[in-house]
């Protein structure tokens, strides 16, 4: 009985994190982006510096009519947001928050699980793009697919480098094997992983698939109300997952200069928050890459870098063993 209770508690904790942290990231994005542009951002909702803006947005989205275009493929159109959102919820289960057993569910092939399921999330965008019966949506879906195919590979290679270094595929296992000098050792892989992850999430500057100024909002053009909100939530949950994953794989997760026993979770959250800030910062600073630049960056820069990182990892691994 206590086993079932334990599992239920863990799942509830993961679910709460899944609901809270994306909103926190979204609110941070509102405010950070505003201040980086010399604005204030939301100031009304909730009273103190507009802290409840996203709650208000959610209420607004819930009130809106859920429109399905007449020419759309109804069932797939309605299914797509769930397909986009659920994988991130599943991924969150496998990410360790602290040392020992502070993880939703420890998996033997954690890296593969996480990357595989994140890849499935893109399927939601593809379904949405196709089922909307809208040429802009279709274009967005196409770009999403092209981008995923290009950036999945460097992401996998960079993650494989860490797995090689740690000698395990399990995320808690990787953290147990972590030493501080892994950070400089794997830094190239980390950059490749983070960049490729950004591209897979279609965050600026890699937001060609949702480029609102040319294809409106890509695959999400026809979506309204709650389903649209689910897509947005998926984007921010994706940021959370990517940042948490990067800090687990490349920055040592709950390892910190001090207080590793009691404050591990704090280090993990801190690293994730810093990376999320970086995601927002990049969005504000850089213009959108063109589609061909996007592909070129993946195939001519990131993949060679990732391969070089794997070679370096292999050499160092052989030398020190």
């Amino acid at each position: 009985m206590s086993d079932a209770l334990d599992i239920a508690l863990r799942l509830i904790a993961v679910f709460v994190a899944f609901l809270v942290f994306p909103l926190v990231i979204g609110q941070t994005e509102h405010k950070v982006m505003a201040h980086m542009q010399g604005r204030l951002g939301p100031m009304y909702a909730g009273g103190f510096h507009g802290w409840a803006q996203l709650v208000a947005d959610g209420v607004k989205f819930a009130q809106k009519e859920d429109v399905v275009p007449a020419g759309a493929d109804r069932r797939i159109f309605q299914l797509a947001p769930a397909v986009a959102l659920l994988p991130y919820l599943l991924v969150l289960v496998a990410i360790p928050l602290g040392p020992g057993n502070v993880v939703g569910q420890s998996l033997d092939a954690g890296i593969f699980f996480v990357l595989a399921v994140m890849g499935v999330g893109v399927l939601g965008s593809l379904m949405a793009g196709w089922a909307s019966a809208n040429k802009f949506s279709l274009l967005g879906g196409l770009r999403t697919a092209a981008q995923l195919l290009a950036y999945e590979l460097p992401m996998l290679l960079a993650a494989a480098s860490v797995a090689m270094a740690a000698g395990t595929l399990s995320l808690p296992g990787i953290l147990d094997a972590f030493h501080w000098w892994w950070v400089p050792w794997q830094i190239v892989g980390g950059l490749v992983f983070f960049t490729a992850g950004l591209a897979e999430l279609q965050r600026p500057p890699f937001d060609m698939p949702v480029a609102d100024s040319e294809i409106i909002f890509g695959a999400y053009t026809e979506y309204t109300g709650l389903r649209f909100a689910l897509f947005l939530l998926a984007e921010y949950a994706g940021i959370l997952v990517l940042c948490a994953l990067t800090s687990v794989l490349f920055l040592g997760g709950w390892h910190g200069p001090f207080g590793a026993d009691g404050l591990g979770w704090l280090w993990m959250l801190l690293k994730t928050a810093v990376l999320a800030f970086g995601v927002i910062w990049l969005r504000v600073s850089y213009p959108r890459l063109r589609e061909d630049q996007l592909q070129k960056l993946a195939w001519t820069v990131l993949i060679p870098l990732a391969l070089a990182q794997i070679a370096l990892t292999g050499v160092v691994k052989v030398v020190i063993s």
Binding site: F113, A116, G119, V122, L149
Partner: peptide
């Protein structure tokens, strides 16, 4: 477990996406 996730990664994540890309 490993084979299962590789299956998802390669087939669902990449092959089907490629297939859908081609179809679209």
């Amino acid at each position: 477990e490993f084979i299962a996730w590789v299956q998802v990664l390669i087939y669902v994540g990449s092959v089907v996406v490629l297939l859908l890309f081609g179809l679209m």
